[in-house]
């Protein structure tokens, strides 16, 4: 028993080597940021790509199957930004839906061109999952379920092809934030505080 426990302890120590340095690097990049709207980020994506940003918006949808994606809306509800959690956050809880949140993270860009779509088609044929296919920003559960169905994926790919064909640049881009921190800013509530949705459980901060 002692031998097994000692082996396990050694394994944990070996795996943990280097994590401290990574944490220090993360902390040094956390400068003072001001929250900007989803609309502003989406209208000036090139200014923010691969940079740390702080964005504010209404959580419209959290994927209930995995919790690995959520969507926040801008002032214009047509502007939806996908948020994925970093390894520190892990997953998003559905109770975030309906809250105004402030998200800190890095804006990521995915360029979708003909080559990418061809690869996507091949991977879809092999039944592989792909990030670009998770774009159910309107929060419709049916759409989320359909994303797993081949025919729906084929439709999405056809739409991507059409978008690329229409694009002057020869590609389209998807943007999302890989979040390192999510904080609930505001939670509207009814008059009676005790009867409110804004209880302590709901005010949880994820980081």
């Amino acid at each position: 028993m002692k031998k097994v426990l000692t082996l396990l302890l050694i394994a944990v120590v070996l795996f943990s080597c280097g994590t401290k340095k990574q944490k220090e690097n993360q902390e040094t990049t956390t400068n003072k940021l001001t929250a900007i709207s989803v609309d502003k980020i989406l209208s000036n994506t090139s200014d923010y790509v691969n940079k740390e940003v702080m964005v504010e918006g209404l959580v419209n949808h959290v994927c209930s199957h995995s919790g690995k994606r959520m969507f926040v809306l801008g002032e214009n509800p047509d502007n939806a930004l996908k948020i994925t959690p970093n390894s520190k956050i892990g997953i998003f809880e559905k109770k975030l839906e309906g809250n105004i949140v402030i998200i800190k993270g890095v804006l990521k860009e995915l360029i979708i061109d003909d080559e990418y779509v061809a690869q996507l088609e091949q991977e879809t044929a092999e039944n592989m999952d792909h990030e670009a296919l998770h774009d159910h920003s309107d929060g419709d559960h049916k759409e989320e379920e359909e994303a797993a169905v081949d025919s729906s994926r084929i439709k999405q790919i056809e739409q991507m092809k059409a978008d690329i064909a229409e694009s002057e640049k020869g590609f389209v881009a998807q943007y999302w934030i890989e979040a390192s921190k999510v904080e609930i800013k505001e939670c509207e509530q009814e008059e009676a505080k005790s009867d409110s949705c804004c209880d302590e459980e709901n005010k949880e901060e994820t980081h």
Binding site: G98, G139, C187, E190, D195, S196, C197
Partner: peptide, 15 residues
């Protein structure tokens, strides 16, 4: 059901 927030996804819908 306890109210949290609302918005209008389109001209004929409220969420």
């Amino acid at each position: 059901e306890k109210y949290k927030n609302h918005y209008f996804p389109s001209d004929d819908k409220i969420k």
